[in-house]
Write a protein that binds this DNA or RNA. Structure first.
Lengths: 220, 220
DNA sequence: CTACTATTCAATAGATTAGTTGAATTAAAT
DNA sequence: ATTTAATTCAACTAATCTATTGAATAGTAG
């Protein structure tokens, strides 16, 4: 009897984490927080939610043990509670990609040709960077780049991409990356670069995965 | 399609998987399905839900891409849609265990003394089995036991545990194991055994790890 | 002390979800 | 063809969740 209760309670606790993952806005917030520490205000801006709404979602994430926060002056800064959260998000994306037809369809219709989209593995990229064979573009906003980026990467937020292309030799291979495996920024950048005749690819996953896989990180 | 819509739709799709994980009953069903193919009827019995309710939860799991089903005669059999689902469940449990205080508390208060909960290492167990000092319980379903088990282990699925206890001397040390490091079956078994006054522990990890570590395996 | 800012709390309406019941399918056995 | 068993569907209530609003709190600066 109490054994059944124990089991039930335990599953209920596990379900709290699942529940927290059961809303698109919260997943988007997690994606941003995975880049590094962020204030409520920042998160509200990038997600397009109201501050109060953002705050409430953040508390749910906190109660589920997915994020932790600390107070610094006026602001409350949130960050992931650990790297295991990134693993969890990756596992979630994996399952969704492999088993939900609609995800494939979405990616398909948005990114016209899928097989050209093949991502460059991290270690391949490391080698090619060492040999100077490739330009790595970090297409995230400046603040995120400064908080940490792939060594040798150039920060070119999407809004500045057109201007930057003037300085980029046409024959240069380009690899772009952003927040994570499904961040649209990198898709967008690759699409535009190809339009201009560059040989562009996107990096496997994004910066959070790069970091949690133990690869070197530069800060500005 | 605008980039913002794409992003939003994508996160919404991912959230479907999260939602499916956001209910204790569904997590329990997944746990049982992870043991192998199961019919709706079986799942309803072991989870204690009504058949109709079980069926509804299963459809949600199916729509989220977590399980697949096939029809065989009168029955519909469900199984996990892939091994990545096991990874996802592991990641979920990991986060819950590491970051939710209540989980620790639960395990703590229910399994009175926590250090007694310490898992028994594989080689220690081997020795004690050889000396006949301990009864090893395999609490997995019969089919899995037959496919391979720890030498000398007795197959006692949880449902049959109460009945089996009549034949078990009170002073006997008992070690239980199941599918893997986080399988609740073993916890459950240990909890019930302790309630009855046995000196019960669980084995380190589970059978797959035992086997892959090169320890001997019996088949029925 | 007062004004200001960032965040959280509290109350609300509208949407979604869980679980129950009983009827409707589907496939096999008589 | 009829009966039987396993599963799903449909309708309903109670509970929970989302997003919005406006007020309350805590830290900072003048």
């Amino acid at each position: 009897m109490s054994s059944a209760n124990f089991k039930h309670d335990l599953f209920t606790q596990f379900a709290r984490v699942g529940k927290a993952l059961g809303n698109g806005n919260r997943l988007e917030l997690l994606e941003y927080i995975a880049q590094g520490e962020r204030s409520v205000d920042q998160l509200a801006k990038v997600s397009g939610l109201t501050v109060a709404n953002t705050s409430q979602h953040l508390q749910q994430l906190r109660q589920a043990g997915l994020v932790v926060c600390r107070k610094q002056g006026l602001q409350v800064l949130y960050q992931l509670s650990g790297n295991d959260v990134i693993d969890l998000l990756d596992a979630l994306r994996n399952v969704a990609e492999r088993h939900i037809a609609e995800v494939d369809q979405l990616v398909d219709t948005y990114l016209t040709v899928k097989d050209e989209l093949e991502a460059v593995p991290r270690d391949t990229l490391m080698e090619r960077v060492k040999e100077g064979l490739v330009t790595v573009l970090d297409v995230r906003p400046g603040e995120e780049y400064e908080a940490g980026h792939v060594p040798g990467a150039v920060n070119v937020p999407l809004s500045e991409l057109e201007g930057y292309l003037k300085h980029l030799p046409k024959k240069q291979d380009v690899v772009a990356y952003c927040r994570g495996p499904h961040c649209v920024l990198a898709f967008d950048a690759v699409a535009r670069l190809r339009q201009r005749g560059y040989s562009a690819q996107r990096m496997e996953d994004g910066f959070p995965e790069w970091k949690s896989a133990g690869y070197p990180v530069d800060t500005a």
